[in-house]
Design a protein around this nucleic acid. Structure first.
Length: 441
RNA sequence: CGGGGCGUAGCGCAGUCUGGUAGCGCGUCUGCCUUGGGCGCAGAAGGUCGUCGGUUCAAAUCCGGCCGCCCCGACCA
């Protein structure tokens, strides 16, 4: 993409309303614009990132055996009366009326709708287990939206719901999501740690929040240091096998958010291994048994003709929140640096002298070759002083950079706090393309 | 929802106390210059001062209503 033709309004100064670093950088790098309190429009660059995150979430859900559906944003109030939550939910739910004065709502979550869809479509224990997910915009009328997309009112969430005939099956479904979440966040370059979360009236230990460590995080968290560097991606994961050993490995070390914190247990960890930090919740998984299936009568016939109330779990990932979360975890004073997997463009090509035909020609050939190798490129061909271009590129945070000037071509990986890529020797285009193609595989 | 603050050009702000023809920096546009990390010179465009009403010869400025936005706290993907 040529920057001279791209809709990419960057800002030199910090907008007054943005207090948190990811919010500031998202506005300044031209990723989003606010349209109302807690509601954002996604500009081309930001939308690319959002779609990349969504893609990774989808791939991992699919790999775990979950099936994608798409439920509407608008729901009927009657649906929520069935579960008893219409009155219980409170003012966070945006309630609206259609032209016939029917009560509707903008969905804050989808337990009711999915339960009905499942109930009406599954009649036998043979139809189980099932796990259905969708990635859809939600609306929660937060009293106080803040931190940009990290606590918006309208937000994109992946939510899914598992259905099993018994608790043992529900635990297997839960474990699949546990592992899928570990993989999902790791693929985005995040160190997300599963932490014991409040299970409410159901009890047990089957609820975990996935927390990304970041100084600017909303909640205080406490865990064993060993969890930080655990690596799931090098692990072979077989979703048809027993995942309990992996889950145990992650849950055997202490990790809890502030509200679940157990000081005594924490202090049993050797002092050098204790980690007290701040974190951002990017995912939450939950087993809730028959909380919805019972009142909404989601039952299937068992092998002996008996009625089985299905056991359910729900699992959420804040897709739009992750954009902010990733920036919080990967930025410096100059701007963002995206992990390769979510970067809006993998490579920035900076033309130091666009009115020099030879340099521009080199840039064009380079961009074409990279794109032919499946590498996304943002090509800064604007007639600007190089300093201004680098400042924009630093904000935008492409993980790789190629600089082309009259003196030659340079390529390098952009590092936090060390963003200079310099031309020491002239590199051949073919060499750059081959190198980047290999590194960005 | 309790407490605090703000609304003046795309962004950051001054002007409001003490009423008198709306300003600065950055960005944008034009020309020249420059080109290895937000360069320089010259010129230009751009604002019914959030909105409605009141006071006044005169309102960005004083008074009142409304709307919007931000921050702290309690609540949450």
């Amino acid at each position: 993409m040529r920057m001279s033709q791209y809709f990419l309004p960057t800002l030199k100064e910090n907008p007054a309303e943005a207090q948190v670093v990811s919010h500031r950088l998202m506005l300044r790098a031209g990723l989003i614009r606010q349209t109302s309190a807690g509601i954002y429009a996604w500009l081309p660059l930001g939308f690319r990132v959002l779609k990349n995150i969504e893609r990774i979430v989808r791939e991992e859900q699919d790999a775990s055996g979950a099936q994608e559906v798409l439920m509407p944003t608008i729901q009927s109030a009657d649906l929520w009366r069935e579960s008893g939550r219409y009155d219980a939910y409170g003012p966070e739910m945006l309630r609206i009326k259609d032209r016939h004065d029917r009560e509707m709502l903008f969905g804050p979550t989808n337990e009711e709708m999915i339960t009905v869809l499942f109930r009406d479509g599954a009649k036998s224990y043979r139809d189980l287990p099932k796990n259905l997910y969708h990635i859809q915009w939600k609306f929660r009328d937060e009293v106080r939206p803040r931190f940009g997309v990290m606590r918006g009112r309208e937000f994109l969430m992946k939510d899914n719901y598992s259905f099993d005939t018994d608790k043992a099956g529900a635990v297997r479904s839960y474990n699949k999501m546990f592992v899928a979440y570990l993989r999902t966040f790791a693929r985005m370059g995040l160190k997300a740690i599963p932490m014991r979360a409040d299970t409410g009236p159901i009890g047990g230990d089957l609820s975990h929040e996935f927390i990304v460590l970041a100084d600017t995080g909303e909640s205080a968290v406490f865990c064993h240091k060993g969890l930080v560097d655990k690596d799931i991606l090098s692990r072979k994961v077989d979703y048809s096998g027993d995942l309990q050993p992996i889950v145990n490995e992650w849950t055997s070390l202490y990790a809890a958010t502030d509200e679940m914190h157990d000081k005594t247990a924490f202090e049993k960890i050797p002092e050098g291994d204790r980690l007290a930090a701040r974190g951002i919740e990017v995912g939450h998984i939950f087993y809730f048994g028959t909380k919805y299936s019972k009142p909404m009568n989601a039952v299937v016939a068992g092998p002996n003709g008996e009625q089985i109330t299905v056991e359910m779990g729900s699992y959420g990932i804040g897709v739009s929140r992750l954009v902010g979360g990733i920036i919080e975890a990967s930025h410096d004073a100059a701007g963002i640096i995206w992990p390769e997997s979510v970067a809006p463009f993998k490579v920035a090509v900076v033309d130091l002298k666009p009115d020099d035909g030879a340099v521009a020609g080199t840039c064009n050939r380079l961009c074409q070759s990279l794109q032919a190798n499946g590498i996304t490129v943002l090509h800064d061909d604007r007639e600007l002083r190089p300093g201004a271009k680098f400042a924009d590129m630093d904000l935008i945070g492409t993980p790789w950079q190629v600089i082309v000037g009259p003196k030659g071509v340079a390529a390098g990986k952009v590092e936090l706090k060390n963003r200079k890529t310099s031309i020491r020797e002239e590199l051949a285009i073919d060499h750059v393309v081959a190198e980047l193609s290999m590194r960005l595989r």
